[in-house]
Design a protein around this nucleic acid. Structure first.
Lengths: 110, 110
DNA sequence: ACAGTTTGTTCTACATTGCAGTACAAATAG
DNA sequence: CTATTTGTACTGCAATGTAGAACAAACTGT
């Protein structure tokens, strides 16, 4: 686990928020659904999984493989959880944006 | 001017917000100050100007060179203004984040 | 059992954005 | 006319974004 860089990218941030939005149920497919629904842009699986593994390398999320389920194609899923370090970064960048917006329009965008 | 890509990076977004926060007075030095103040991280001039020129290439900001001022070292400044296309992108990405965060609060209530 | 179908993840490659150092340009002061 | 100050542009590399295809593991039907 690498030391968290002092910044996260635009897509990384969305992925973190998507994981957070799902409590204990976050894995590749549900994360992708949440992202496509929220952003109205199409997210390829490749993009998502590379981002997920980079986030894990940086120690911003943790993942573990669950049990297979008894459905057709129900292979084991890799579940994801956002770590505390990531939550701090999310808060920081959001606050930075708010500070800039607040300088002039005071809440017009929030 | 290139067609705006459908996404802007994390730093690009901060730069756009910084320009917006300054009305007519935005140029390299003031933008940099606003960013350093809002983010509490140090922004090198190189980073800022490369980002500014990429934003202009993409048609998200416009710039023009003003008049020199009668102070020591008071050479002409390049002023920046955010264009409408950029404002749409800013709104979109902020709404996407908001939607995801909203999902979280809804999920927490179940 | 085993070929076919479904669900899910990893691999590989390239494009775009982030960041820093250095060079360059243009103004005033002495 | 060179020293100093303010401001911008150039160059190169690291990190992040994106896509397509390959791979893996479960079930179904015969």
């Amino acid at each position: 686990m690498k030391k968290p860089s002092s910044y996260i990218g635009e897509f990384e941030e969305l992925v973190l928020l998507a994981i957070l939005s799902q409590g204990e149920n976050a894995y590749g497919v549900t994360i992708r659904q949440a992202l496509e629904q929220a952003t109205a842009r199409s997210i390829t699986v490749g993009s998502l999984y590379t981002t997920l593994s980079r986030l894990e390398e940086k120690g911003l999320v943790e993942s573990w493989v669950g049990e297979p389920t008894a459905e057709r194609g129900g292979r084991a899923k890799r579940h994801y959880k956002v770590k505390g370090s990531a939550q701090s970064l999310l808060r920081e960048v959001q606050e930075a944006r708010q500070r800039l917006v607040g300088l002039r329009t005071l809440g017009a965008m929030q």
